[in-house]
Design a binder for these strands. Structure first.
Lengths: 244, 244
DNA sequence: GTAATAGTGTCTATCAGACACTATGGT
DNA sequence: ACCATAGTGTCTGATAGACACTATTAC
């Protein structure tokens, strides 16, 4: 359009590039609640939002990272030590205003980590801490526009849980149907009818029984594992159609 | 981690930044088929994929664009002259391999344009042309990884059409229920039962009748418009649950 | 009248939700 | 025996799909 600097649109080295980051929203379930992992912003003077909580993430490293998902996996590994949980892109946000250092774009992913028995487990990185999610939010103020990003990730998770097998990735490999139902209930924050739940899960061929039961102070429960651990299962209908 | 260039992680001006682009997948329905708008890559020697077809898009302009969606709207306007059709982000793709000029990330949006009667209409940009979509693809070879991006956009559109009012944005403001049903059938590439369709549409309060009918060589049809043109409507269930 | 599309009514199979019931372990 | 949780059976209301039917215009 403007002919003052015609080369600018051809030579990529002349083109101004936004700061590019990847942020990862890492979910797990602890103590009957959905939690998200947050890190502390560094306390050095040249960093914005110093000392605040933020989503784990940072600049794309063009040497280390082959692609965006690889970058997300690297950041996930850094903060949790976990190799390959469920990882999905939420979307990207970019603009002049979101980072005081200039035009920036972030690519947001969310990950699901199996719930561990001990809450302090799975956080080798000392600056990272699990925060419970209470009605679509977290109680601390977040750096940048991370509150918005987190809300979008929660929204995506809740929506998708209605018609997919996602909550299975919040459990260890072997689980009972009650465990699985419980994960759905925690994420959706409502109770599900047991009989309907089991019918759906079996109809979708989501799980297969293994040759073990879990004992307890009551009737032992059959243990299951995912039929196809690699592939997410879509239910033909949502769990509980909302009457309008 | 590596302490050789400690400032690199603090000073944003030192950090290498990927090339950043926005691509827009613009859909419309022409002659009973879903079409997508594709442009010609410039034929200059320093441009990659010269002369090939590609999705309309290009580098983010940090002066002109306040944010990514603004950038997408600008590119949409450039190629179609249209102000504000339906626009939604599909996601982002980035990596070392997708652009020969280096590490690049693109933010992909899709737009829905009302079907026009004359196919040559609505394309003021001379390098842009409508291409029909035939089983998830287009017949020409596309530049970069645009075939993958297009496939993702088609997938998103098809999925979402099953349970939302999206096809209404492929129509002009006033339309008959048969028009609307037809848009669903074109996008989903299958026929829908008339009675069930009407029941659903009314139950969701998607449309409201206006004081006009469309005459023809047969019984005139009631004209409708969207009840809330700004808000996309979600149906409680999908259109046709697939038996597994 | 006929052709053609608009629009409605009825039946049925399916399935979620509610709820009660049975089963099986520990104590 | 009793408790607690696992797991099943049965009924009902909502709804999608099939399909036949009626309605209204141009010719």
């Amino acid at each position: 359009m403007e002919m003052t600097q015609p080369l600018a649109s051809f030579d990529p080295h002349v083109i101004e590039r936004p700061l590019t980051t990847v942020d990862v929203v890492i979910f797990t379930v602890l103590e009957q609640r959905l939690h998200v992992l947050l890190v502390l912003r560094p306390d050095t003077p040249e960093e914005p939002f110093k000392g605040m909580r933020a989503l784990p993430g940072g600049f794309v490293d063009m040497q280390k990272d082959d692609d965006l998902e690889g970058c997300a996996r690297r950041k996930l590994q850094q903060k949790t030590g976990v190799r390959s949980p469920y990882l999905e892109q939420v979307g990207s946000w970019g603009g002049i205003k979101r980072d005081p250092r200039g035009w920036s774009a972030t690519h947001v992913y969310f990950a699901l980590l199996p719930a561990t028995e001990s809450p302090e487990d799975g956080t080798p990185s000392s600056d990272a801490k699990w925060f419970p999610i209470e009605n679509q939010r977290v109680s601390v103020k977040l750096a940048f526009d991370h509150a918005k990003l987190l809300e979008a990730a929660i929204q995506r998770l809740r929506n998708k849980v209605e018609y997919t097998s996602l909550p299975a990735y919040l459990l260890p490999e072997e689980f009972t149907l009650s465990d699985l139902q419980h994960m759905y209930e925690v994420v959706l924050e409502r109770s599900i009818e047991k009989s309907a739940f089991r019918t759906r899960v079996f109809a979708a061929n989501l799980v297969e029984p293994i040759d073990k039961v879990r004992a307890g102070p009551n009737r032992p429960a059959q243990l299951y594992r995912l039929s196809q651990p690699k592939e997410i299962v879509y239910f033909p209908r949502t769990f509980s159609p909302r009457k309008i």
